[in-house]
């Protein structure tokens, strides 16, 4: 089991490397169901100019498209997600953690923590389900998922380091050029 986990994370790291080669923030992931890789994804925020195109979102869209092509119903898709395990090189951000909760994923393994944006313990803990009982019986409870960090952390971190050393060409320019301010 342990070696399986490492092998899956290895695949996620490979995705992150592909991102790095494309000058993207190096994060990668794979979705596992019944012991098989069913989708992989890597960050595409620079290419798409859409900062929400994180590795997880990419992989989720692949799955959604595939399952609908296969004619799966909503409940079948929901059931599939409830059997999925995600391996991702960096702790899912708040947006992705919220998305994984919405989909009702079973479990997440990640590499390094995401101290700025992390939604699985670092900033918010969206993976821990709320036990509060909601008033209306129709309203489904928000779903939590099991989450374990620290898998191949150093590999994940070293990719980030390489990325930031080569400089992020996509970094924002200040809204107003501050060169002027320095002249004052």
């Amino acid at each position: 089991m342990e070696s399986d986990s490492l092998a899956y994370m290895e695949l996620a790291i490979h995705q992150a490397k592909l991102a790095l080669e494309s000058l993207e923030v190096p994060v990668g992931c794979v979705f596992i169901k019944d012991g098989k890789v069913i989708a992989s994804g890597r960050n595409r925020t620079t290419e798409t100019r859409n900062a929400t195109r994180h590795a997880e979102m990419e992989a989720i869209d692949i799955l959604m498209e595939k399952w609908q092509r296969d004619g799966l119903s909503k409940s079948e898709v929901a059931e599939n997600f409830s059997k999925c395990i995600l391996y991702v090189t960096c702790e899912p951000c708040i947006m992705c953690a919220a998305a994984l909760s919405i989909l009702g994923i079973k479990e997440v393994y990640y590499g390094c923590a995401n101290e700025k944006f992390g939604g699985c313990g670092s900033i918010l803990s969206l993976h821990s389900s709320y036990s509060e009982t909601l008033i209306s019986g129709e309203v489904p409870q928000r779903k939590g998922f099991k989450c374990t960090g620290g898998l191949m952390t150093s590999e994940a971190v070293s990719l980030f380091r390489t990325f930031y050393e080569q400089g992020n060409p996509n970094a924002p320019k200040p809204h107003r050029p501050l060169v002027q301010k320095e002249v004052e």
């Binding site: 925020t45 859409n50 900062a51 929400t52 951000c93 708040i94 947006m95 919220a98 998305a99 919405i102 944006f117 939604g119 918010l124 969206l126 924002p172």
Partner: peptide, 13 residues
């Protein structure tokens, strides 16, 4: 917005 959307709007600045 929900948490997912609110964070997406942070990412997109």
């Amino acid at each position: 917005p929900c948490t997912m959307c609110a964070m997406a709007l942070v990412h997109q600045r």
